[in-house]
Computed example of a mutant assay.
Amino acid sequence: MITVEYCRTMARYNAWQNRSMTDVMRSLKKAELTKDRGAFFGSIFATANHLLWGDQLWMSRFDGGIGPSVAPKDHLKLHDTLDAYLSDRMRTDARITRWAQGLTQVSLIGPLTWYSGVLEREVSKTKGLCIAGFFNHQTHHRGQIHAMLTAAGHRPGDTDLFIMPDGD
């Protein structure tokens, strides 16, 4: 379903897009970040926290490391300050990149099994499906944030994959 190169490319894309998004977020006042904009998770900041929380949860499943520091019910409040969020975002992006760099084609084969708090049961799916879903989840929620930033009068960077710098 997927290749190592796909994972590495998407990890680079994730980090590149997060840098672009957080560059704009840095320019916003807290009230702008936390304003309810009618999106699924309300605000830019709540959506960013959800995205980071999800990245950390999936990475704990993929690499066996530590998951998010808050319970699922608190995922929108993973961080209460932009500085704490930005620091954790950068660490998580580096973790995703390291994980992708260490993959082999064999490591993408087989099932991934975990307990889903959302479904309240054990789930087992192919690793390829889970990894593709992981990267899709990132793109989906960054798209929501991009739309909110644009609607608020800001200009986030380009999102097209073919525009991503080669050495990024």
Rank of each mutant, 00 (worst) to 15 (best):
A147T: 15
M10F: 08
V4I: 01
T92A: 00
Y13D: 05
A100D: 00
R12G: 14
R37P: 05
G153W: 14
K29D: 11
L108F: 04
K35S: 07
T150C: 07
R95C: 02
A151T: 10
H140P: 01
S43H: 03
K127F: 10
K125Q: 13
Y6G: 09
G117S: 11
M25W: 03
G54H: 05
D83I: 02
C7S: 13
M25P: 14
Y85R: 00
F41R: 12
T9W: 05
G102I: 08
M164T: 13
G110S: 08
L103F: 12
Y85L: 03
V4W: 00
S116K: 08
D93V: 04
I163P: 04
I131C: 06
H137W: 08
I109F: 06
S116Q: 09
L76Q: 13
D23T: 12
G133W: 13
S20M: 12
H50E: 04
A71Q: 14
H146N: 09
L76R: 11
V24F: 10
Y115T: 03
R155P: 06
K30Y: 10
I96A: 02
I145W: 01
G110H: 05
K30M: 14
D23C: 06
H140V: 01
D83E: 15
R19C: 05
D36H: 11
M164L: 13
W58A: 02
L103M: 13
Q105C: 03
W99H: 08
M148Y: 12
R37F: 07
D93M: 00
M148T: 07
L76G: 13
L52C: 10
G110P: 10
A84M: 06
M148A: 01
R91Y: 02
R98A: 15
D168A: 15
T34N: 13
T104H: 08
D63K: 09
S27A: 13
G38S: 02
T159A: 14
R12K: 15
R19H: 12
R98G: 14
A39L: 09
H50K: 06
V4C: 06
K35I: 06
I2V: 07
I44H: 10
R12H: 12
K125T: 11
M10H: 05
L103Q: 01
I2N: 02
T34F: 11
K35Q: 11
